[in-house]
Design a protein around this nucleic acid. Sequence first.
DNA 1: TATATTAGTTAGCATAGCTAACTATATTCG
DNA 2: CGAATATAGTTAGCTATGCTAACTAATATA
Lengths: 153, 153
Amino acid sequence: MTKVKAENIAPRAETIAAADRLHSAAIHLLRRVRKQDEASGIGPAQLSALSVLVFAGPKTLGELAAAEQVKPPTMSRIVTGLERSRLIEITRDPGDKRRMHIRPTAKGTRLLQQGRQRRIEYLAAHLGSLTASELVQLGAAADILEKLLSNWH
Amino acid sequence: MTKVKAENIAPRAETIAAADRLHSAAIHLLRRVRKQDEASGIGPAQLSALSVLVFAGPKTLGELAAAEQVKPPTMSRIVTGLERSRLIEITRDPGDKRRMHIRPTAKGTRLLQQGRQRRIEYLAAHLGSLTASELVQLGAAADILEKLLSNWH
DNA sequence: TATATTAGTTAGCATAGCTAACTATATTCG
DNA sequence: CGAATATAGTTAGCTATGCTAACTAATATA
């Protein structure tokens, strides 16, 4: 027997079904698209961290770890790899010497933009086989999801 | 100047935009949901392989590697891990002793179903804040994507 | 000033991806 | 039939990415 608390609304069957299909579709979609990233020459974690730096601006190591939802030691190693490849630049915070400021180099920005373009164009090429109506539906769904994700609690 | 080959249809701007938003939404959605899987006690590759076995039935190692889009040595290690945890059972093909048949155990099926339930319910709980119409749109998008992915070339 | 907190690193472990090279079994062809 | 070839999977060894525990250095606080 499952106890149902009054303050929790149990998801309805359709909600569960939609969640299930959405989850599965997202997994399979990303698995395909991620293959395109191999051409970038760096690993997925480095690429993702670089993406944050390019699109959200300079960050400290701790901020970057939080943004990527990994622990500081993990981000420390990712940053080391990015710096070795000259994709990021690190400066020390003058006011607090424990902190580092991490920003993408021109090379890093270029690599990221090119990789992003590859990904998006690959996906777009496949979306090309859909009808105009289906494409509109996918775009709408993406918007709904981004809105939902932006105030995830 | 970009050279446009006659045999390639350049994706339209709306297609590119939809691809971009879809890509971003899928990444962010999965990053959230993936956290729920940590409770399963096994890694993501093992969980995913187990999922294929539970939902698509017994497979050989090679079939499983192809389904998961990894190379045989990688799947070999994943399978070793799953077997050590008694989540799968391996038998030799009587007609071709090189081949192995891999199937989930009752324990494996149970673990997968529970993990799946956690993930889906977590996602469903968040989808609960959407309107009925938005939910229908997400479900429709998931179906369009799965159809697209099933005959990806 | 002494203590506690914070930022990041180092060491060490596990999982997961790859390629190259191997074993064992099946298949094909002379 | 038997030798060469092909196929299924494993082993070894590399890299990347995740973790925790324990450390250093710098800052903040009592």
